[in-house]
């Protein structure tokens, strides 16, 4: 467990989470959530739990992004003000 790498990953996770909930572009929010899941998978792998890590990478970054983009294609892209 490398403490500076851990802190950097957690810092980026917080920044990406705040960006994902404040943006008005829903496609950008989906891509930011995908990046959030990928960094979360990096954190899991870095904490020596590879099993949880690649599950997070497969579900969070892969399948959920495809589902959300398929759902977004049926609604509007921009959030109403």
């Amino acid at each position: 467990m490398i403490i500076p790498l851990d802190l950097a990953l957690l810092f980026f996770i917080v920044v990406i989470a705040i960006a994902a909930i404040t943006t008005k572009d829903l496609l950008a929010a989906i891509v930011l959530l995908s990046a959030y899941s990928f960094l979360m998978a990096c954190v899991w792998v870095e904490m020596n739990s590879v099993d949880v890590g690649f599950t997070e990478a497969a579900i969070g970054a892969g399948v959920t992004t495809a589902f959300m983009i398929a759902a977004l294609s049926r609604t509007a892209r921009w959030e109403e003000k």
Partner: peptide, 9 residues
């Protein structure tokens, strides 16, 4: 569950 998710992906 993990293997099934990878297959679905």
């Amino acid at each position: 569950f993990q293997g099934g998710t990878v297959l679905a992906a």
